[in-house]
């Protein structure tokens, strides 16, 4: 039992685990993470592909190969911190709590990271002016306006989505500006500015005379081909709907369609286009513990440094 305790609290174990995590993380950055299985099969020789998928190197940071050393490291940190704390409590010499704070902070950080990993939720969505979106059971937002400001060189200066916030259906905050780096923070959810886009809608008539709509990214099968509506493009003689014809995974042709022209079983009646803001709603119960952990780590490092300087001066 004593031997196990000594092993778990040992600095050597810490060094080995840190080096193992370093090397494994390094290798993981060489393999693109989270891609489809077909990507790895196409990109790597068969042996390497099998190794990557067997060891979960394609989703390394949620794999056992990563989590087991992290768990062992957490145990090592915990045992070491407890042992140091007890020894210092008994000791009459100068007490140095800096490293203990760092160790405790790192333990809280690992716990917070686990909470983030398992409980964090996020959803990307788009809104046009006047749209209302329910964020949680209690909160909803309505987009009042969306503004893009450009620099003189054409690069983006700011994207601002101004929203009204409703709590239980009643107005809570009017005209809150959500910008990049300036999220809307509500109880249980935060909303971030992530992107903007022009969303196009086509109104088509099918052979039976019924009206159907198609948005960017939608399409239809026509014999061997799949026609995919890519976007609305501005031509000198007016806007046109750009369709791409796919056979299998290959684009074989493209067509620009003006109103009254037909494609497959459909005739284009009109096009509608609107600017939308791209927002992200996220709920991360691990974030506050992580921030608290980082503050503890920073305080621990500062204390270590100060005590070391005092020790040298003394």
């Amino acid at each position: 039992m004593n031997a196990l305790f000594r092993f778990l609290k040992s600095v050597r174990l810490a060094v080995v685990l840190i080096l193992v995590l370093t090397v494994l993380s390094l290798l993981a950055t060489l393999v693109p993470q989270g891609a489809e299985d077909s990507f790895y099969r196409g990109e790597y020789p068969l042996v390497i592909y099998r190794l990557i998928t067997l060891l979960d190197f394609n989703r390394f940071f949620s794999s056992l190969l990563f989590l087991v050393p992290v768990a062992l490291f957490a145990v090592n940190l915990g045992v070491c911190a407890a042992d140091r704390f007890l020894r210092q409590a008994r000791s009459k010499s100068r007490r140095q709590y800096g490293p203990d704070l760092v160790h405790v902070g790192l333990l809280v950080l690992i716990a917070g990271a686990l909470v983030t990993g398992f409980a964090r939720q996020e959803k990307d969505f788009t809104m046009a002016e006047g749209d209302e979106v329910r964020l949680t059971k209690d909160y909803s937002i309505r987009l009042v306006s969306f503004r893009t400001v450009l620099y003189e060189n054409g690069s983006p200066r700011s994207w601002t989505s101004t929203v009204d916030v409703f709590h239980d259906g009643k107005p809570q905050t009017a005209s809150f500006p959500i910008r990049v780096n300036h999220p809307l923070r509500l109880k249980g959810v935060s909303v971030y500015q992530t992107s903007w886009a022009r969303e196009s809608t086509l109104v088509l008539r099918d052979r039976q005379g019924a009206e159907v709509t198609a948005h960017d990214g939608q399409g239809f099968q026509d014999g061997q081909s799949f026609w995919y509506f890519a976007q609305v493009v501005q031509e000198s003689d007016g806007p046109k709907a750009l369709f791409q014809e796919y056979q299998g995974h290959q684009i074989v042709s493209m067509r620009k369609l003006a109103p009254a022209q037909s494609i497959g079983p459909y005739t284009l009646l009109r096009m509608e286009s609107r600017e939308v803001t791209g927002l992200r709603a996220a709920n991360d119960p691990g974030y506050l513990p992580v921030i608290a952990a980082l503050v503890i780590v920073a305080a621990g490092l500062a204390l270590t440094f100060i005590q070391k300087r005092r020790g040298e001066a003394g």
């Binding site: 990271a113 983030t116 964090r120 996020e122 990049v180 780096n181 300036h182 999220p183 935060s190 971030y192 992530t194 992200r280 996220a282 991360d284 974030y287 992580v290 921030i291 980082l294 780590v297 920073a298």
Partner: peptide, 15 residues
């Protein structure tokens, strides 16, 4: 530390 705080404010994910 500041990288994580910035990333959370900008992209909604601290890591």
């Amino acid at each position: 530390i500041f990288g994580a705080i910035w990333a959370e404010a900008a992209w909604g994910s601290w890591w």
